[in-house]
Amino acid sequence: MLKTQRLEEQPELAVEAKNLTKRFGKFVAVDHISLEIRRGENFGLLGPNGAGKTTTIRMITGVIKPSEGYVKVFGIDVAKERKKVLKYIGYMPQKFSLYEDLTVEENIRLYGRLQGLTGSLLKDRVKELLERFYLWEFRRRLAGKLSGGMKQRLALATALVHDPTLLILDEPTAGVDPPLRRKFWEHFRELNREGKTILVTTHYMDEAENCDRLALMNRGRIIAEGTPREIKRRALGGDLVEIVFEGNLDPAALPGVKSVMEDSSERYLLVVEDAGRDLPRIVKKAEELGAKILVASPVHVSLEEAFIRFMGESE
């Protein structure tokens, strides 16, 4: 009991990984990565297929052992005291991993029982999850007979059966059509609001915008880390703004401008240190110099663009 309390009182880090490495023979799947996921945040692990995301996740859940380094979940070393950690983790593997020859309800019930739930507590929890994830009317259907989206909902419901504080989701939206993907992210946000920490991997860059913080992975390494905005900034070296003007003006000489990215006669894409601070200054300066500003606005940079830049750098 004392130990449990101590865990609950350690709020800052849900996951802490240091020098985490996994080698399969000579192949290095994960190469000395370090991660810190704060309690309550929605943390995204982003990267192309084969970047080492799943291997990282598997080391965090303890289903494979690191070759080097360690992972602590709520301060407990996963490789050493895995059993203690399990009740805090809800895990949804990349591939559908529930029993296809059991029904929807049987799967949730089984996992509830394996997690130690019994009696009315178990019954209520199963019912609650079936209703919450719109599975009630399909509860007697074999899991193998469900559509892709329903399978994912079942997997999520099962991962939540023991009310874990950390939810680890490996590609939860892979193969799910876009409207349903949005629905899933609504679920995640809701869970986040309930105070759960979420670690999610994805290779859909647009989804990653929803995360509080991100780590970009490529070839077993973390090549960038931070909030989506920070990452984009770092990729370009600043914010991107667009200006269109009439008159004679050297955009590179404007205040705060670090570089000119695109130059198509009168339309310019500029990299500035901070769009919020620099844009008004640019407009003011340009008008002082006698140019007429037609458009001056921050430009949305996609994570994809940022990612491609980082990948280019890392190679």
Binding site: K95, L98, Y111, L114, Q115, T158
Partner: peptide, 13 residues
């Protein structure tokens, strides 16, 4: 082979 083991061992069995 089917991958169900990965989920199975995430419980305290």
């Amino acid at each position: 082979e089917k991958g169900t083991f990965e989920q199975f061992i995430m419980t305290p069995v």
